[in-house]
Amino acid sequence: MLTCAIIDDDEINRLTLEHYIELTPDLKLVASLSDGIAGLTYFREGNKVDVLFLDIEMPHLSGLELLRVLTDPPEVIITTARQDFAVDAFELRVTDYLVKPFEFARFTQAVQRVQARASHSASASATPAAPEAPANADLFVKVNSRMVRINFDDVLYVEALSDYVNIVTPKQKYIVYTTLKALETRLAPFPNFIRVHRSYLLNTQHIESIEDNTANLRGGHFVPIGKSYQDGFYKGLQRI
């Protein structure tokens, strides 16, 4: 059973979420609040929940501002009518981002992501292991005028293109306005991503073979392994 709180200044949205929570056997609602200030007071009084359903645009204190001041926030599912806050929200490590109006099926999918993260944390606590990538491996990136969700488990490699990067998956390529260095920093928690060339980041999960200092990836993709990166790369392979 996961305890839940709702913070949303729209009464209709709160009632919808309360109804969805009531329909979900694994959830228990313990607080439904109408603004960010009330939410801040609730948590500063020592109250804790497993899941927070949080609106962004609220008077006095927005949802993102609330997240920035909470010292130990719970799992957060953003519920908002705006798509353009997605990048900022995921930088704050939210679990999911629901754009209103959303159906019960999409709500359930978000809850399942929280449950998967909770299960992962419980397993890690019970059996100490080597550090692993965060459970939330998604990031929204801006491609032209669209915000696109990319799951980094699907990424084969990333190639630098001057002030842009080319993020390559088995099905598609995404040209994103950022630097390889910035994306390398964003991917630091994911040990399967390794810098293998001044122009390439490689996802080692997709390597099929290595020949002549070239990594052969699934789907017929090839990535060169730069001379100055070879020692670190091959040492890393011994731990894979």
Rank of each mutant, 00 (worst) to 15 (best):
S119H: 07
L67S: 02
R149P: 03
L66W: 09
Y157N: 03
V99L: 03
V223N: 06
T79Y: 01
Y20F: 14
P128H: 14
A135C: 04
R146Q: 15
L161P: 00
L92H: 09
P74W: 05
T108R: 09
R239T: 13
E184V: 02
S199D: 10
L237R: 08
N47C: 02
D35F: 14
L40T: 02
T214S: 07
Y157L: 03
A215L: 12
T204H: 02
S119W: 01
A137S: 11
V143W: 06
D26E: 15
V165F: 05
L33G: 06
I78R: 09
F152L: 02
S209I: 05
A215H: 07
F152H: 03
Y200T: 10
L217I: 14
A116E: 05
R14G: 00
R14H: 00
E211Q: 13
V69H: 11
V76E: 08
E22T: 11
S34A: 13
V69R: 12
P101T: 08
R14W: 04
N192Q: 14
G219H: 02
K227T: 15
D8A: 09
G220R: 01
N144P: 05
A122Q: 11
K173F: 01
Q83G: 01
H206K: 10
P101E: 11
E211A: 12
A81N: 04
P128V: 07
A160H: 00
Y177C: 00
L156M: 01
Y234S: 01
A105H: 07
P191D: 07
P131L: 09
V51F: 05
I56K: 12
K142Y: 00
T95W: 06
V111W: 07
T179F: 06
H120N: 10
E211Y: 15
H60V: 13
L17W: 06
P74D: 03
T169E: 00
A130Q: 14
G46Y: 15
T41H: 15
P189C: 06
N213Y: 14
T179G: 11
K227Q: 14
H206C: 10
N192Y: 12
E211S: 15
L2K: 15
L98M: 10
R186L: 09
L52W: 07
A182F: 05
Y229F: 10
P131Q: 12
P73F: 11
Y157Q: 01
I225N: 08
P73N: 15
I21Y: 08
P191E: 00
R198D: 02
L98S: 11
L29I: 09
A130E: 13
I175H: 09
I240M: 14
I194Q: 08
T127G: 00
V76L: 03
A86V: 10
G220N: 06
S209K: 15
V168H: 12
L202S: 04
A124Y: 08
T24V: 00
I207H: 12
P134G: 08
L217W: 09
N47W: 13
D9S: 11
A133L: 07
E65L: 01
I240L: 15
A129P: 04
K235S: 13
V176M: 05
D154P: 02
D96N: 03
I78K: 02
D163T: 10
R198W: 05
A122N: 08
I77V: 13
T185K: 10
A38M: 08
